[in-house]
Design a binder for these strands. Sequence first.
RNA 1: GGGAGCUUAGCUCAGCUGGUUUAGAGCACCUGCCUUACAAGCAGGGGGUCGUGAGUUCGAAUCUCGCAGCUCCCACCA
Length: 882
Amino acid sequence: MDLPAIYDPSITEEKWYAYWLKHGFFRSVPDDRPKYSMVIPPPNVTGVLHMGHMLNNTIQDVLVRRARMQGKNTCWVPGTDHASIATEAKVVALLKEQGLEKSDMTRETFLKYAWAWKEKHGNIILEQLKKLGASCDWERTSFTMDPDMSRSVIESFVYLYNKGLIYRGIRMVNWDPEGQTAVSDEEVIHREVNEKLYYLKYFFSENGKAGKEYLSIATTRPETIMADVAVCVNPQDERYVGMVGKKVLIPLINKEIPVLADDYVTMDFGTGCLKITPAHDLNDYEIGLRHKLPVIDILNPDGTLNEQAQVLVGEDRFEARRKIRHMLEENGCLEKEEPYITQVGFSERTDAVIEPRLSLQWFVKLEILAKRALAYVEDGNVKLIPNKYRNTYRHWMETARDWCISRQLWWGQQIPAWTLPNGEVVVASTAEEALELARKNDPNLQAEDLVQDPDVVDTWFSSWLWPISVFDPDKPGHPEKESNKELAYYYPTDDLVTAPDILFFWVARMVMAGDLFCNQKPFSNVYLTGMVRDKLGRKMSKSLGNSPDPIELMDQYGADGVRMGLMLCTSAGNDILFDESQVEQGRNFCNKVWNAYRLVRSWKREETMVPSDTLQEAVRWFSQLLAATRYEVDDLLSKYRLSEALMLLYKRFWDDFCSWYLEIIKPFTEEERRLDAQTYDMTLQFFNIQLHLLHPFIPFITEELWQNLSERTSGESIMVSAVPQTGSFDKSALDEFVRLQEMVVHIRGLRQSKQIPRKEELDLLFKGSFPSKWHGIAMRMAGLKTVQQVHEAPSEVNVYTFLIGTTECFVPLGTLLDIEEEKSKLHAELTYYRKFLSSVEKKLANESFLQRAPRKVVDIERKKQSDAKSKIKALEKQLELL
RNA sequence: GGGAGCUUAGCUCAGCUGGUUUAGAGCACCUGCCUUACAAGCAGGGGGUCGUGAGUUCGAAUCUCGCAGCUCCCACCA
């Protein structure tokens, strides 16, 4: 067989993915094996693959592939999320480009456009995941607006409504004037902004006319003064004694409003005097409720001023702010202005400044749900990895307020509530059922008398059902019914891999939904990935242009290389600083594996040959090392330390397997590339085991080589074949081998510094212990002619000496040895050990140490002491000789 | 304003309940090599007073408390 010297992933990767699909290795149906299940965090249909997806899905694929190789019935459910605000915004923008306005079309027409858009773009991201190697059960691909998914959402809405967990009410919500919809508290991002604090004069009213005296009121939002209904001071505030109960005039519109007292007002902020604008500020709204004040809303849904404002009608709120400032100044009502830094809320989806707005919305009561969802994490039923997120999770669950779930959009599941002519509202799964309900009170009602709520539900109100509804869409609406076979088998899922920024949006709510509808957690472990940043630590963004195109990256380095590059530097919960050189490292590793394989395959298996002792020892050593490695890798993976597990495998393969094992057993001469059958077979077996251990991380090349390793019949794959058995291992024997390696490295260093060519063989004498079984290995690796034990240090002058542990080693060098250099080297070593010894002895001289430290620790120190002493003795002797 | 977390080599990080750690890894770096699997390679090497100050302890990178710097989350002071 002829393999090229450079591995080309573009040939193999597509081939094997098609093969895996063809043989249905990703497919899962319930059976009697133990299961491993996981749902993908459904990416937005609007999205294209970015580095965050790459990281997230690589981790998932590693976990899934490992479980599959452990013989579990593995099910990874893929799908996409309809992402109502983001998608609707995208479709609206697209229509605008074509000269079409959403406001000009009916709901049906708009949705037709939206669906067309989804059909065209919706699956791009999933196709891209295939290139990465994601082993999802594609037959299960779901979309959060699939008919049965939507039914699940609607029916669960009805269920919760009937249980009293969903209610409708007029509340202050976060209004996004750009998207023209309410958004939840979690969708508001607060940012610091430089604004101005305006001090306005509210003159006291004297029979409706402005008097001479005034109250000074600080505000950042002068454009809202027309909506003021009162001015408020703290009852304890001595400055304003006697003013409560009087009336002041709103500047510009000269409207009389009362001066009130309320404890909410802080005396030492601003002027201690607060204008009350119930329609446009949450606190003011609450104060308004306390004092039974009217609500005057002066803003349109799009953020422009309405008729109620009386002035600047039709102007945008920010334009109005600019203009009103001048008007107030001209009017003599602007006392002063100061620069002011304040927190402003922005919409997560549209980045518009959020407007507190009073409106009729639907809410989910969270108090009980949050408490129960918290318990799952608190008692370890659901584990967060890393654990530090427990605190964050707890904090949110303890402070969560009711969840506003209605959105003034069309793209999504329409709220199943109908208003009757008399204003009553009925909630039912379908229009027919709603009519039936309505007729209980008024049998004459007709279908057209019922008007469905035009709003849709929050996207997260559908995705919180995801781990349930992908298996059994009927369950959320009917928790009392028995789970279907799928749900019973796959639920709860095992792992969830997601980013910490949706811990509350999604993870916490899935726990709530799991508890509500299945009375069980939705998953056992939540692995939280970090954010992928560029190597300077900046967020990846289109505008910075610092985000590599994953597809190009995979074309250039292979999916395996990219996966490896990402996995080498990821640890749970920590951001990863992405640098293309890591991907290069991944690619290089794949190439290394490839070439190691080429080497082994270039040898001839010789049935009649008998393995030398050296070869047998090498096999013995590496098989033990592999057993130990596998044990360690299992341990690391069980703790989700993926990058450490991969790094360990990387080092084993590259440093130990290639640089030591293969170099030891490599046949000497070119003509005779023959290896005895026993060693040859074991070497292939080592390869086989390492391919298995590496497969979850780099699935393509491992499949390619595994298929090549021996005759395979169609339908076989490394991904469904169990990892071959590894034997036992003896830790101390492995440690001893490290001594041997140190010795070889030392001699190689000597060659380098004395410029002794490899071909020139050396002799080694040693005093102390150095197992004879390894002499052959040392000779091979260090280029030695002889290895010989002595009882006394050689007396010649021209002998290079060094210590490995407590074994003294001697290499006669003839004229090459520089006596002075040797002396200074020995002196340096001597100084080091003397210092070391004195620190150890200081410890041992300490009575308290001897008394209080555990015996084991004291023994260790004693051993250090005696070792150091014998080393010093040996060094002194060598110096003497020189 | 409240809370959480971080600070170990040039970079990214490991070091879990204090003691074989006068601290490890990978990358980067330096030196020498086209040694017949791989220059996407081989061999060798240097590099850290563990942010800072104190405390607990026989013993601290590890535990406690100040201080400094960074990051994230939450929050309605106009």
